[in-house]
Design a protein around this nucleic acid. Sequence first.
DNA 1: GGGTGTGAATGAATTCACAGCC
DNA 2: GGCTGTGAATTCATTCACACCC
Lengths: 225, 225
Amino acid sequence: MNPIEIPNATKVRLIQLLQLLKDWPKQKITSLDISKATNWKSSLIRHDFWLIGFSKGVSNGYAVCELQQAIKNALGIQGPDSIHNKKESNGAYVQNTDSETSSTLLKNICIVGLDRLGSALLDERFFENSGFKIKAGFDSNVNRVEILRSVFPLYPATEMAMTIKREKIEYAILTVSDKDAQNMTNRLFSAGIKGIVNMTNVILKVPEYVKVQNLSILNSLNLIV
Amino acid sequence: MNPIEIPNATKVRLIQLLQLLKDWPKQKITSLDISKATNWKSSLIRHDFWLIGFSKGVSNGYAVCELQQAIKNALGIQGPDSIHNKKESNGAYVQNTDSETSSTLLKNICIVGLDRLGSALLDERFFENSGFKIKAGFDSNVNRVEILRSVFPLYPATEMAMTIKREKIEYAILTVSDKDAQNMTNRLFSAGIKGIVNMTNVILKVPEYVKVQNLSILNSLNLIV
DNA sequence: GGGTGTGAATGAATTCACAGCC
DNA sequence: GGCTGTGAATTCATTCACACCC
């Protein structure tokens, strides 16, 4: 269905756009509406839709829910609040044949580093309806693992490799201290993790098949000064 | 000193590079060293240095501390661990003539939203040596403001405008719930905030003079799937 | 040999411009 | 008149290529 690769810049916008659509008050939306809400040029938005092969617009705009579905399809995304719909014949994902939640193919994640920032994410509500499910938390401080309470199990870092495989965890949020970041990263990709949301300040070195998104607060502050 | 505008992509890299330099074990570093650590092409790195007018390299690499200084100069950055050095005649910043910390011109920030994520940031150590200083935390839940303890004062959201002006706060980290995000943002820029690190999932609408960096964890997860 | 500095060449992302539709 | 769809034109970012230096 989607022969041509979607440019990265477009992906970033479409994912954000989903959030806007999620609580758009009307049934229809025009590229100009979107432009007003985002400051992106309206032509850029139309161009993005063109790139993903979506051309269901009429002169009074796009049907919000058609558009949502088209974006999710194009990006292979579940959430937010995934509507169960017909699926086009795209190379289906490895099915989540796992445990309790085999419902709609959720992607399993873990939190690495349970310091203040990490433990703040130990909250299922945070990932509610997102298409992601926390399966584990890790910390090298065994003490911390024992004290904290959460609805999913916490493990010492020594059990990362094992647990990641057993629980079929594919993505990780890294919230350890800068000095531990690369070390933990090494363990993560050795264990088969496919992508990392990096909340540390360091540049992670990973094999080219591992995707990284950098979310350093400090670096971001420096970008807005 | 710096007549030509630094491209954004270059800025992003240079800021990250500072982190690498911070604990680089040797006195010198080559563009190839950097390339290995970051996966950026070495020619790109040299090109970046060229763009900021840094050409102090000899055939065995760049002197780490000269390079650090050049990057900080080029970007107008203080931290990390700012070395007190001669300052070239660039249009100096509005001097922080304020209160206790008139030491080295730190930039004042605040945290808006003291839910789990926000309160995790209520930690001075987090911003130690970063060039930034937390001056206040805000939450619309008055209760939360009273219960939490921190080394700097917490205020109900109603006092945002006043406090931001009084404390000369220029930047904000936004960690409120998605539904409050735009509302709080409006108050922030009305109060004169110049930049926002947006940890919510929504696209913020701001006047063009306000800079925003989006750090949504959910959106980032969707980008690495 | 192994490194830098720098313009030119290529590639990616955005904006323009305009035909066509309701 | 107000909107979409789409290629072409433009702007921005990265990579190449090669002269030069130690």
